[in-house]
């Protein structure tokens, strides 16, 4: 368990990158209020995914517009998938990431 900081550090509908245990994790705050955490680097050409645009389902890399399912990390553009990390917002409004072992894909 690790607290990354207040969820309000991330503007609604945007992403920010955090360094967790030597890994770069992009955390997104969706407009429906939920949060997602995925590997921060696009497997295509290394694009910074936290700079990408999102909706409630999809994340789009800013460099070549490769798209990913923001919940499962699955590529929608036929490239490698992203790793998904379990992240939640606690009662105090802090982002909590539990561990860096890749979680099961939520059903």
């Amino acid at each position: 368990m690790r607290i990354l900081g207040p969820v309000t550090d991330i503007p609604l509908g945007e992403g920010r990158t955090y360094e967790v245990d030597g890994e770069m994790v992009a955390v997104f705050r969706l407009r429906d209020g939920s949060v997602r955490a995925l590997s921060a680097v696009c497997p295509h050409r290394g694009g910074p995914l936290a700079d990408g645009q999102i909706d409630n389902k999809v994340l789009v890399c800013p460099l070549h517009l490769m798209a990913f399912d923001i919940t499962t990390g699955c590529s929608l553009s036929g490239i490698s998938d992203l790793t998904v990390y379990p992240v939640t917002v606690d009662a105090d409004g802090h982002l909590v990431i539990s561990s860096l072992t890749a979680s099961e894909v939520p059903s």
Binding site: D9, P11, R16, T17, Y18, V41, A50
Partner: peptide, 13 residues
């Protein structure tokens, strides 16, 4: 304009 507007998105690179 927003929190972390100019924060790096690749902190380890």
């Amino acid at each position: 304009a927003t929190p972390g507007q100019f924060r790096t998105s690749l902190p380890l690179v």
